[in-house]
Amino acid sequence: DVEPGKFYKGVVTRIEKYGAFINLNEQVRGLLRPRDMISLRAENLNVGDEIIVQAIDVRPEKREIDFKYIP
Protein backbone atom coordinates (compact mmCIF):
# COMPACT_ATOMS: atom_id res chain seq x y z
CA ASP A 1 0.00 0.00 0.00
CA VAL A 2 1.20 3.48 -0.88
CA GLU A 3 1.09 5.95 2.01
CA PRO A 4 1.08 9.75 1.75
CA GLY A 5 4.39 11.27 2.83
CA LYS A 6 6.48 8.17 2.12
CA PHE A 7 9.16 7.98 -0.56
CA TYR A 8 9.24 5.38 -3.33
CA LYS A 9 11.46 4.43 -6.24
CA GLY A 10 9.60 4.47 -9.53
CA VAL A 11 10.13 4.34 -13.27
CA VAL A 12 8.93 6.97 -15.74
CA THR A 13 6.60 5.17 -18.16
CA ARG A 14 4.95 8.01 -20.08
CA ILE A 15 5.38 11.76 -20.39
CA GLU A 16 2.54 14.14 -21.25
CA LYS A 17 2.16 17.94 -21.14
CA TYR A 18 0.30 17.61 -17.83
CA GLY A 19 2.92 15.39 -16.15
CA ALA A 20 4.85 12.16 -16.06
CA PHE A 21 3.40 8.78 -15.21
CA ILE A 22 5.48 6.91 -12.65
CA ASN A 23 5.16 3.17 -12.08
CA LEU A 24 6.14 1.85 -8.67
CA ASN A 25 5.37 -1.70 -9.82
CA GLU A 26 3.06 -3.40 -12.30
CA GLN A 27 -0.07 -2.59 -10.29
CA VAL A 28 0.78 0.86 -8.88
CA ARG A 29 1.05 3.94 -11.08
CA GLY A 30 0.74 7.63 -10.31
CA LEU A 31 1.20 11.08 -11.79
CA LEU A 32 4.02 13.56 -11.23
CA ARG A 33 2.67 16.97 -12.27
CA PRO A 34 5.00 19.76 -13.45
CA ARG A 35 4.14 21.89 -10.39
CA ASP A 36 5.38 19.05 -8.16
CA MET A 37 8.77 18.70 -9.86
CA ILE A 38 10.95 20.77 -7.55
CA SER A 39 14.27 21.44 -9.36
CA LEU A 40 13.37 18.95 -12.10
CA ARG A 41 11.99 19.96 -15.45
CA ALA A 42 9.72 17.65 -17.41
CA GLU A 43 11.95 17.94 -20.46
CA ASN A 44 14.78 16.40 -18.41
CA LEU A 45 12.75 13.24 -17.82
CA ASN A 46 12.88 10.30 -20.16
CA VAL A 47 10.79 7.15 -20.35
CA GLY A 48 12.69 4.49 -18.42
CA ASP A 49 14.29 6.89 -15.92
CA GLU A 50 14.29 5.68 -12.31
CA ILE A 51 13.51 8.44 -9.81
CA ILE A 52 12.60 8.75 -6.15
CA VAL A 53 9.18 10.33 -5.58
CA GLN A 54 7.09 11.18 -2.55
CA ALA A 55 3.42 10.20 -2.47
CA ILE A 56 1.45 13.36 -1.68
CA ASP A 57 -2.13 12.35 -2.40
CA VAL A 58 -3.46 8.79 -2.48
CA ARG A 59 -7.04 8.13 -3.59
CA PRO A 60 -7.48 4.34 -3.57
CA GLU A 61 -11.17 4.53 -4.47
CA LYS A 62 -10.16 6.14 -7.79
CA ARG A 63 -6.85 4.24 -8.04
CA GLU A 64 -5.02 7.58 -8.29
CA ILE A 65 -1.75 8.70 -6.72
CA ASP A 66 -0.09 12.10 -7.02
CA PHE A 67 3.66 12.27 -6.56
CA LYS A 68 6.15 15.01 -5.76
CA TYR A 69 9.82 15.00 -6.74
CA ILE A 70 12.18 16.36 -4.10
CA PRO A 71 15.91 16.13 -4.84
Rank of each mutant, 00 (worst) to 15 (best):
E64M: 10
V12E: 00
R14E: 04
G19Q: 06
N23T: 13
N46Q: 15
A55G: 01
K68M: 10
G10N: 01
R59F: 04
Y69P: 03
G5I: 02
D1P: 12
I56C: 08
A42R: 12
G48W: 04
L24V: 10
I51T: 00
A42V: 15
R33N: 05
N44T: 13
G48V: 01
T13L: 04
K62G: 06
R14C: 08
I52F: 08
P34Q: 14
E3S: 11
K62C: 11
E26K: 15
R63Q: 13
Q27E: 12
I56S: 05
A20V: 15
D57P: 02
G19R: 07
E43P: 08
E26S: 15
N46M: 13
L45V: 10
R29D: 06
T13P: 00
R41T: 11
N23W: 11
T13G: 04
N44Y: 12
D36R: 05
K6T: 06
R33Y: 05
K9P: 03
R14Y: 05
I56V: 11
I22G: 00
K17L: 09
L45M: 06
I38T: 10
F67I: 04
E43V: 11
F7S: 07
D1A: 14
F7N: 05
Y69A: 03
D57R: 15
L45E: 00
E50N: 09
Q54T: 05
G48F: 03
D49V: 04
I70D: 12
L40T: 06
D49I: 05
V12M: 01
I56F: 09
M37K: 02
G19H: 06
K68I: 10
F67Y: 02
Y8K: 00
D66K: 12
G10R: 00
R41L: 12
I52W: 15
V58Y: 09
R33W: 06
L45P: 01
V11C: 08
G10Y: 03
Q27D: 13
Y69M: 07
L24R: 00
Y18A: 06
R14I: 05
R35K: 14
G5Q: 04
D36H: 12
I70H: 09
F7C: 13
P4I: 15
N23L: 11
E16P: 01
G48R: 02
R59T: 04
V11Y: 12
D1Q: 13
I38A: 13
F7W: 10
A42T: 13
N46H: 14
F21K: 01
G30R: 02
V47C: 06
I65Q: 04
E3P: 08
G10P: 00
E61C: 09
V12N: 00
P34L: 15
F21Y: 14
R63A: 12
Y8A: 00
T13S: 11
D66P: 02
V47T: 04
V28K: 02
P4A: 12
I52M: 09
D36W: 09
N46I: 09
P34Y: 15
E43S: 13
V47G: 00
R59Y: 05
G19D: 02
M37F: 07
Y8V: 01
N44G: 12
V11Q: 05
A42M: 15
S39M: 13
K68W: 06
I15N: 01
Q54H: 03
L31V: 07
Y69S: 02
Y18C: 08
L31K: 05
R41K: 14
G10D: 01
V11F: 08
Q27L: 11
V58C: 09
V28Y: 08
V47R: 01
I51R: 00
M37I: 07
I22N: 00
D66S: 13
V12W: 01
K68V: 09
G48Y: 02
A20C: 09
E16A: 12
Y18I: 11
I56N: 03
S39Q: 13
V28D: 07
L31G: 02
I22P: 00
E3V: 15
G30N: 02
S39R: 11
I51L: 09
I22E: 00
P60W: 12
N25I: 06
D1V: 14
A20L: 12
S39N: 14
I15V: 10
Q54P: 01
I15Q: 01
N23G: 06
N25T: 11
M37H: 04
I56Y: 12
V2N: 03
A42Q: 12
I38K: 11
L31E: 04
R33P: 04
G5P: 04
I15D: 00
F67D: 03
E61K: 08
I51V: 08
P71F: 09
V53T: 00
F21N: 01
N46S: 14
F21G: 01
F21I: 14
R41C: 13
P34I: 15
K62A: 11
V53D: 00
Y8D: 00
K6F: 07
G19I: 08
V53P: 00
N23Q: 13
V12F: 01
E16H: 09
R29K: 10
R41F: 10
N46L: 10
R35G: 12
R59L: 03
I22C: 02
S39T: 11
F7P: 02
S39L: 13
R14A: 10
A20G: 01
L32D: 03
K9V: 11
D49L: 08
R59D: 06
L40F: 09
A42P: 15
I65Y: 09
D66M: 13
I52S: 03
I70M: 09
P60F: 09
I22W: 02
K68H: 05
R35W: 09
V12S: 00
I51W: 00
R63V: 07
I15Y: 01
D66T: 13
L45Q: 00
E61P: 06
I65M: 04
T13E: 05
I56K: 09
F21A: 02
V47A: 03
I70W: 13
L31H: 04
K17G: 07
I51Q: 00
G48M: 02
E64I: 11
K17M: 09
D1R: 13
Y69D: 03
L32T: 02
I70S: 10
L32Y: 03
A42G: 11
R29G: 14
E61N: 11
D57W: 10
E64C: 12
R35M: 09
P34F: 15
P34H: 13
D1F: 15
D1S: 14
V47N: 01
R29L: 10
Q27A: 13
M37T: 05
V53Y: 01
D66W: 13
M37R: 02
I15C: 05
V53M: 06
G10Q: 00
T13H: 04
V11A: 01
F7K: 04
E61V: 07
L40R: 04
T13K: 04
D49N: 05
E50W: 15
K6D: 02
K68Y: 07
E43C: 13
R63M: 13
N44C: 15
E43K: 11
V58A: 04
R29M: 14
G5W: 06
T13V: 10
V58S: 06
Q54I: 11
P4R: 13
S39W: 11
A55E: 01
I70E: 09
L45D: 00
L32E: 03
K17C: 10
Y69G: 02
I22A: 01
E50P: 08
Y8L: 01
E3A: 09
V53R: 00
F67Q: 05
K9C: 15
G30Q: 03
L32H: 03
R33T: 05
V47L: 10
V58I: 09
I38P: 08
G5Y: 07
D49G: 02
V28I: 14
Y8E: 00
D66N: 09
P34N: 15
R29T: 13
K68R: 15
L24M: 03
V47M: 04
S39V: 10
P71C: 15
L45R: 01
D57K: 14
